[in-house]
Design a protein around this nucleic acid. Structure first.
Length: 346
DNA sequence: GATCTGTTCACAGAGTCCGC
DNA sequence: GCGGACTCTGTGAACAGATC
């Protein structure tokens, strides 16, 4: 009796993989599936419908409670839908050649008034337009906009960029010389500083940290160029999972400049003063320069961090006094660390 | 001439100190 | 408490001189 008065319910239906939606009116699920399969050209056997929003299976009892124009997904046998998460998953699986998606996102962005949605769309576009697989200036001219012509590859520039940052640390060590009053200490400090620079030159200013063509053990990124924030100085990992691929686009390259190589034990507040203090009572030859080298210029003490994870306040971490001076044990360790290198200071 | 190396300058943000 | 000056953490660009 009730069935005789069933009203047609209008719904919007789409398939698992397509984005196109169809408006259908039906009196029950059975009719809806039949019409939907015809429209989407799917086999009727095993077909079922669920809510687009959360994947809830639509039963005959549930169907009358649906609001008009509710969005549904028509699935074939064996297919499941976990709601909008499925769309996000599909989006994440999109490779950079998804030109259609890029064009669609650009189209949406052109008409978008909401700042929040603009931000989401521009971030999406930036990721979709990733060109990290390109390496040379000829292949990706835009990436090199504003970059000195002598750099022919992205890796060469990134390597230089890292070297340049570390050279800045050398300058800071040199500057400390001016604050030394005692001539003898100044002399020893200059000697130590010279040795540290020699060690750094042997390591080619550790430019390998940013160079994706380096061996995995040497670089801080993946072979594709992805860098992950190592978390603030007091954390083991970045809680916010920051990551960036400066090889991907010009914008990413520029944004990467806001990422910092943060000294866990601080260079200016702690390491340089510790070296100066040690030289007040010891000669350079008695100092374990390998330890100071590691603290000043290597990833032993450097963490690559997103600017948000860069804590600029005092870190309150001190140098290890057991490692600051040369002992037979430290000398052995230094020898092991410099094994294979052409020369090192003693 | 191209590349490397070192220097100088300008910039940003956070923390600290000090006078009002 | 507030605001300004200063110091610290970093960065990049531009330039000059040395070296390959």
């Amino acid at each position: 009796m009730f069935g005789l008065f069933k009203k047609n319910k209008p719904v919007k239906i789409r398939g698992y993989s397509g984005d196109r939606k169809y408006g259908i009116a039906s009196k029950d699920v059975k009719e809806l599936i039949k019409k939907g399969c015809k429209l989407l050209q799917l086999p009727l056997s095993g077909a079922h419908v669920c809510l687009y929003e959360d994947g809830t299976i639509v039963t005959e009892e549930f169907f009358p409670t649906l609001p008009d124009n509710c969005e549904l997904v028509l699935l074939s046998r064996g297919q499941t839908w976990s709601g909008v998460v499925c769309d996000i998953g599909r989006l994440l699986n999109t490779d950079r050649h998804a030109d259609g998606l890029i064009e669609a996102a650009k189209g949406l962005l052109a008409d978008e008034k909401s700042f929040k949605r603009r931000k989401v769309l521009t971030d999406l576009l930036q990721n979709l337009e990733d060109r990290s697989d390109l390496e040379t200036r000829e292949e990706d001219e835009d990436w090199f906009t504003g970059v000195d012509v002598r750099f022919k590859t992205k890796s060469a520039y990134m390597k230089y960029n890292c070297e340049s940052r570390i050279r800045g640390y050398v300058k800071e060590v040199d500057n400390a010389t001016n604050s030394i009053q005692k001539a003898k200490v100044k002399e020893e400090f200059l000697k130590a500083s010279k040795c540290l620079v020699e060690m750094l030159k042997n390591d080619k200013y550790n430019g390998k940290y940013f160079d994706r063509t380096e061996k995995e053990s040497g670089r801080l990124c993946t072979k594709e160029g992805w860098f992950t924030c190592q978390g603030s100085f007091e954390q083991k990992l970045c809680q916010l999972l920051h990551s960036i691929n400066p090889y991907g686009s010009r914008e990413s390259r520029i944004v990467f400049s806001t990422w910092n190589l943060d000294h866990r034990i601080e260079k200016k507040r702690t390491i340089i003063p510790a070296l100066l203090e040690a030289l007040q009572t010891h000669k350079t030859a008695d100092i374990n320069l390998n330890y100071f080298y590691q603290m000043l210029f290597t990833r032993e003490n450097l963490k690559l961090v997103h600017i948000v994870c860069h804590k600029k306040g005092a870190h309150d971490l001190t140098c290890d006094t057991n490692k600051m001076f040369r002992t037979s044990k430290n000398a052995r360790k230094a020898k092991e660390d410099t094994k294979g290198k052409k020369k090192h200071c003693t």
